[in-house]
Lab assay of single mutants.
Amino acid sequence: KNAAQIVDEALNQGITLFVADNRLQYETSRDNIPEELLNEWKYYRQDLIDFLQQLD
């Protein structure tokens, strides 16, 4: 998997990933985040941060 796929997957589930103060953050109206997504975000944290910062 790559960062773009993970960001896309999150968006499809109503979750927006973004970077604030060099930390990976998310916004969602969901009550909870599936644990497998959280684990994936932790595992790919630096890739996601790098990818999202390139988009800014």
Rank of each mutant, 00 (worst) to 15 (best):
E40V: 08
L17T: 02
L38T: 06
I6A: 00
W41M: 06
Q54L: 11
D8H: 15
L52I: 06
D56W: 07
Q54G: 13
V7R: 04
Q54I: 09
D56F: 08
V19L: 10
G14Y: 04
E9C: 05
D50S: 11
E40T: 09
A20D: 09
V7T: 04
D47R: 09
Q53I: 14
R45F: 08
G14V: 02
E35G: 07
Q53P: 03
E40C: 06
Q5E: 07
N12T: 12
A10M: 03
V19A: 06
D50N: 13
D47A: 15
V19S: 03
L55T: 11
S29E: 14
Q25P: 01
F51C: 02
E27D: 10
N22K: 07
F51T: 02
A3N: 02
N12H: 13
T16S: 07
L11P: 01
K1T: 04
Q25L: 13
S29W: 10
Y26Q: 02
E36Y: 12
I15L: 03
V19I: 09
D21P: 01
Q46L: 11
Y43P: 03
Q5I: 07
R30G: 08
I6H: 01
E9Q: 06
N39G: 07
T28H: 06
L37E: 01
E36I: 09
E40Y: 06
E40K: 08
N12E: 14
I49T: 04
E9L: 04
L11C: 13
L55G: 11
K1E: 02
Y43D: 06
G14L: 05
V19G: 01
A10T: 03
L24G: 01
I6Y: 02
A20F: 12
E40N: 05
Y26A: 05
F18N: 03
N2R: 11
R45E: 15
L17K: 00
A3L: 07
R45M: 15
R23A: 13
I49D: 01
D56E: 13
K42T: 14
E40R: 06
N39P: 03
L37N: 03
E35Q: 12
R23I: 15
S29F: 10
K42R: 14
Q54K: 14
L24M: 03
A10K: 00
K1D: 02
N2P: 11
G14A: 04
I33K: 01
D8L: 15
Y26K: 01
R30Q: 08
D56H: 13
Y43C: 07
N2T: 15
Q53L: 15
Q13K: 10
I49V: 07
R23N: 14
F51H: 07
I15C: 04
Q53Y: 09
F18S: 07
E36L: 07
I6S: 01
D21W: 06
T28C: 05
E36Q: 11
D56K: 12
E9Y: 08
N2V: 08
E40H: 05
F18T: 08
K42L: 13
R45W: 13
E40F: 06
R45Y: 15
L17C: 05
R30K: 09
D8M: 15
I15T: 02
V19W: 14
D47Y: 08
D21S: 06
K42Y: 13
E35I: 12
E40Q: 08
W41K: 00
S29A: 12
L37T: 06
E40G: 03
I15E: 01
T28V: 04
Q53W: 07
A4P: 06
D31C: 11
I15R: 00
K42I: 14
Q46R: 09
D50I: 11
N22P: 01
V7W: 07
L55P: 10
E27W: 15
A4I: 05
D47C: 07
Q54T: 11
Y43E: 11
L17I: 05
Y26D: 00
Y26W: 15
N12M: 14
Y43L: 14
Q25A: 08
I33C: 02
I49S: 02
W41C: 02
K42C: 15
A3C: 07
K42P: 02
A10Y: 03
I49C: 06
T16L: 13
G14D: 05
N12K: 15
I15N: 00
D56L: 12
Q46W: 08
R23D: 14
N32V: 13
Q46A: 11
Q53C: 11
N39W: 12
D50W: 10
N32W: 13
L55Q: 14
L48V: 05
I33S: 02
L11A: 12
D56N: 14
A4K: 14
N12G: 11
P34V: 04
E27M: 14
N2A: 10
L37F: 07
D8R: 15
I15Q: 01
T16N: 08
L17N: 01
W41R: 00
L37C: 03
V7A: 03
Q53N: 13
Y44A: 05
G14E: 04
R45P: 00
L17R: 00
E35W: 09
Q54S: 12
F18W: 07
L48I: 13
L11E: 06
Q53K: 13
N32E: 13
D31H: 10
D47N: 10
I6L: 11
W41F: 09
G14S: 04
N2Q: 10
E27P: 02
Y43G: 05
V7Y: 14
F51Y: 15
E35P: 11
D47K: 11
Y26G: 02
K42V: 12
Y44G: 02
I6G: 01
D31T: 12
Y26F: 09
R30A: 08
L17P: 00
D21R: 05
I49L: 08
E35T: 09
Q54C: 10
G14T: 02
R30F: 06
Y43F: 12
A3Q: 02
V7I: 12
K1W: 04
E36D: 10
A3G: 04
V7L: 07
Q5Y: 05
L11S: 08
F51E: 02
D47W: 06
L11F: 12
I6M: 06
V7G: 01
L48R: 00
F18V: 06
L24H: 00
E27H: 15
A4V: 05
